[in-house]
Design a protein around this nucleic acid. Structure first.
Lengths: 345, 345
DNA sequence: ATTAGCACTCTCAATGAATGAGTGCTAACA
DNA sequence: TGTTAGCACTCATTCATTGAGAGTGCTAAT
């Protein structure tokens, strides 16, 4: 159990280190107004805090820096929400004021402003494409043996694929297929599309509707290309400005990671509601050892749709980032709901 | 005018520096088989080459490195095409063997293999979207007051925009607009779309076709969002592995540049046919001072469509890169032509 | 025209001393 | 008994110095 004084000293230490990125010494802490103790007293407590694993030293006679456990304690127990200046609030709101119609545009702008305000890197995991439903299916022939299939979803998202047309299919065949598919695909979730298409093929075979199954099969094949979820970044470079990434090797591996976020599953906690904080090794990835990730989810109507994250050094300004993310995820949810569900929704 | 010996020495110097990234000394050159001169002789010639601006010293008593002028001479006069190993050739060909149907997929893969083979960063500027022609225009209503407009081009590219429907337009109104637009837009180049849409609005007004001009106006507004050309990268990280970017500041600015290529016009010579080489400051951009860019264009049928570029340090392996780009641009043109024009084209 | 020889210059890595921030411990103090 | 002052000690950092090595420029010999 920590004494009150120890809690105070831990808090001041973390705050100071977050601000300066330098190991914090006892003398420095003692100088602060809110700490009425002498350096010697503070030294004793710091030694205890180190024994308990909340603080670390970089070398035998250096000041202390917070350990992951220290950050964890700080985040769990000391996070008083920070006031965001009205100036910055209006800056956020201004993004949403010019009524946009494109969800992608909204997300892009949000990523930008978030990284600008925090000086960290923001990552927005786009609308989870699988949760969209087919609104309309259509086909546009290109050449004799190829055509584009287009699927519009209820959220205005458009998926398209080129597929090849097996020989000897006339345009009326294609028209028949489009009608057939519109009948059976509308309302289907995108992630069910594959299965559904195969079911249609089967039913065609059963009903002996000519060789139409060939056509659907070809379409199905080109649909197999998986739709990866889009990832939007803001301020990738900000991370490189953090002093902890002065080491070129670290900088390289973190940049590499950023470029491959979508290939590495589970880097960001997507499903959970509310605000998540992962500190250092909690991210389960070597390159992220010195990073923390703060994630908030956003929703459309009642449905969780994606997440919005800030990635910064473990030494990041948790108070501020949490407050900003909180505001932003709310605004984003509202704006996207307006676009996709209409102003009444 | 350079003597034969000077030319030889310049060539050997550049080759050696490209290989080792270390300043080249007279002794080192004299050791090579193809150079039958003593270090002292070579020193004299090197001093002359320096006076003429082909070589530089990093400090008073270091070996020489090529200047930009030196590279330029090397590139213009000494580029014997390098033999690409059959091993690597098959590697390239294998990309194109699995008959793909999506142009984007082809381009993506090409970017990847190009960066893998060169260890530099590859950049493929996608099909110039403006050169595509409208094949079909259609609209899918989403809610009472919004809809998606979809334009399919003759190359299978799909552009889509959400636009808002002014109040009191029925679905039959929309249908009328779609018919109207299909009549007048099919065959139009994408870059003419704006002007064309305005012309249509005018003609609607003249013909007093109800308030349909409002609807077209709203559509036109959302079309204004410019279609930026897509940029595909391969091996962004490779550049960071080059010793010249060990300097964090340089690394940062080059990474920054890469992320904003599409915002900075003219970084890559797009229009020119054949192979272009830009060395260092010829790129007209501070962050690219230490980089060279080699560009090749690719075509579909007879039409120039985009470019394929390698960006590396000025000290890059020009011979090899030029040869690879040459092969690649040919293969890419052929493959894209096959996809978009059909096997006969 | 080419080369050997030599003095000279500059970088780089290693060494070591001075500095300073910070700790741990002990003894004094309230 | 909890807090503090004092002091010896540790370690990183900075700076100047030094020697080795690589390379040049010049001059004189071939």
């Amino acid at each position: 159990m920590l004494t009150n004084r120890q809690v105070l000293i831990l808090q001041v230490t973390v705050d100071d280190f977050i601000e300066t990125a330098q190991p914090v010494g006892s003398r420095q802490i003692s100088k602060k107004e809110e700490v009425p103790y002498s350096p010697a007293t503070i030294r004793n407590d710091m030694a205890d805090l180190e024994d308990m694993g909340f603080l670390e030293k970089t070398h035998t006679s250096s000041g202390r820096i917070p350990s992951e456990k220290g950050y964890r304690y700080y985040v769990d127990n000391m996070l008083t929400p920070q006031l965001i200046s009205t100036d910055e609030l209006t800056q956020i709101r201004s993004v949403f004021e010019e009524r946009m119609v494109e969800t992608e545009q909204v997300i892009r702008k949000s990523a930008k402003i978030l990284s600008d305000l925090t000086s960290y890197t923001s990552i927005l995991l786009g609308l989870d494409v699988r949760k969209h439903r087919v609104k309309r299916f259509s086909v546009v022939p290109l050449t004799d043996d190829s055509a584009v299939a287009i699927i519009v979803t209820d959220s205005g998202h458009v998926e398209n694929r080129v597929f090849s047309i097996p020989e000897s299919f006339s345009s009326s065949d294609i028209e028949r297929m489009v009608n057939l598919l519109n009948d059976s695909l509308v309302g289907v979730y995108l992630h069910e599309l594959q299965t559904k298409l195969e079911a249609v093929t089967q039913s065609i075979l059963r009903q002996r509707l000519g060789r139409l199954d060939d056509l659907v099969g070809s379409l199905n094949k080109s649909m197999k290309i998986e739709h990866e979820d889009k990832v939007y970044y803001g301020g990738k470079m900000h991370l490189l400005n953090q002093p902890e990434f002065n080491d070129l090797k670290k900088a390289r591996s973190i940049m590499y990671l950023m470029d491959h976020v979508n290939q590495i599953p589970g880097i960001f906690p997507v499903d959970k509601k509310g605000i998540q904080i992962r500190i250092g090794s909690e991210n389960n990835h070597l390159a992220m050892e010195d990073c923390s990730v703060i994630t908030a989810s956003y929703a459309i109507g009642e449905e969780q749709m994606g997440s919005i994250a800030i990635i910064g050094p473990t030494r990041m300004d948790y108070k501020r980032v949490v407050s900003l993310l909180d505001i932003m995820s709310g605004d984003l949810s509202r704006e996207l709901s307006r676009i996709l569900l209409g102003p009444q929704g």
